[in-house]
Design a protein around this nucleic acid. Sequence first.
RNA 1: GGCCAGGUAGCCAAGUGGCAAGGCAGCGGUCUGCAAAAUCGCUAUUCACCGGUUCAAAUCCGGUCCUGGCCUCCA
Length: 462
Amino acid sequence: MIVVFNTLSRKKEQIIPVQDKQIKMYTCGPTVYDYAHIGNFRAYVFEDILHRFLEYAGYHVIRVMNITDVDDKTIAGAVRENLSLNQYTQKYIDGFFQDMESLKLKKATYFPRATQHIPEMVELIKKLLAKGHAYEKAGSIYFRISSFPDYGKLSHYNFEQILSSQTDEDEYEKEQAQDFVLWKGSKDEPFFWETDIGKGRPGWHIECSAMSMKYLGETFDIHTGGIDNIFPHHENEIAQSEAATGKKFVNYWLHCAHLLVNGEKMSKSKGNFYTLRDLLGKGYNPIAIRYLLMTTHYRDPLNFTEKSLRQAENTVSHLQAFYQRVCFALKKPGMENKEIEIFIDSASKGFYDAMSDDLNISAAMSEIFKFISNINDFFEKDMISAMDAKKITKFLKKVNEVIEIIEPDIEELSEDKISLIKEREKARKEKDFKKADEIRSYLSTQGILLEDTKYGTRWIRK
RNA sequence: GGCCAGGUAGCCAAGUGGCAAGGCAGCGGUCUGCAAAAUCGCUAUUCACCGGUUCAAAUCCGGUCCUGGCCUCCA
């Protein structure tokens, strides 16, 4: 049983999919006017862990991540650089996919782009117009929130509160200041579409309703995003979608908390604004960034500092070193050790149980670290045989399908390096430590770290 | 002003009525030719603060302080 915190009810709820063993999930993706920053990636890493854990738990996940390639900022960027909208956004779309690879973010099943789904949005808007949930004013089309009594159910703002809220927008043409735009009419804007509902471009919210329902159906399981999306974006998605279909739009809404940098909101003016590229440029390990972003529970604020990133780098390299140590034992003859299986079962259960409880990753990781500590004890006594090592690597690879912290493919050493290691062992026996140290430091420059144990020398890749 | 989170060791971070997980860093021991790695031990009598309930509170209740977010650009 997997339980998640649903923003709609503000309670933890058991996930029961619309269709047995299949989860349909929508995540708000990037607006491609610039490279994504680590705050954005906190959300994407959270969604990645959710996606991967659902698969680990045996669900078939169908996931959509949209790409917003038309909005005020992308338009402004394209105009500034005198490019077409597609030319301008392509650079950032490519950048986003590169960044996803750096952080080992699993690909969604679909990455629909707003500009390629204008007809679907137009259809949805027509439906809303026909049902009286939308109206046209001066070429633009607005959603009439007074026609949707559930408005506010996700953000838990009450209707009066929303209606009385101040807005400094110059939106006098709307019936009510809080109505939001579905379609922005265009007179002399650089980018527009000619459609049945007029010349213009879509409002921000409509793409997510149109694209999610196209790929996932009118009612689907999970919708995720950052908490700042709760209002107005997700609230508006619910209004548009449920007003159009008369059906419940999404069963589980999951939102992750913000990332702070040195205790403050990240902003360009404060100079604490990091893109993933900035951090990689400083030489940080992308896997450590992934680890740091995922190890604070997704509903708690995460305070990002370079100090904690360096700590994460150490943790990640210890994990990798452990994995390599196990791999090194894959060729070691010896008896099977029954206790190993008990440790695996216990860690496996502990990991699953923790993750099932609203993705409690810290508790889940602590199971893994305790497991490692137990196994290291056996290494100390030289009691890990090939059969044991095989089981351990199998378990670690399975868990790694969720956490993606370990690099599972270890390259074999070349023949000449293996003979160098043998040569060094011989030198050590002959007390020729000068030669032994030379070989060790040479191999170190080749990225090979030697560990002399009382049972012989083993190597790991740095 | 309304709504929502958070405050646990030097740092990061679980735990939400029954002896305070785990990681990083540090110190001491073992191992080692020296290292590295590993390992053992130590590092929070106390969970922002003040009251209350209870046999028992980090956890529940009331209040206070601090930090952050949302309230129509936002992950």
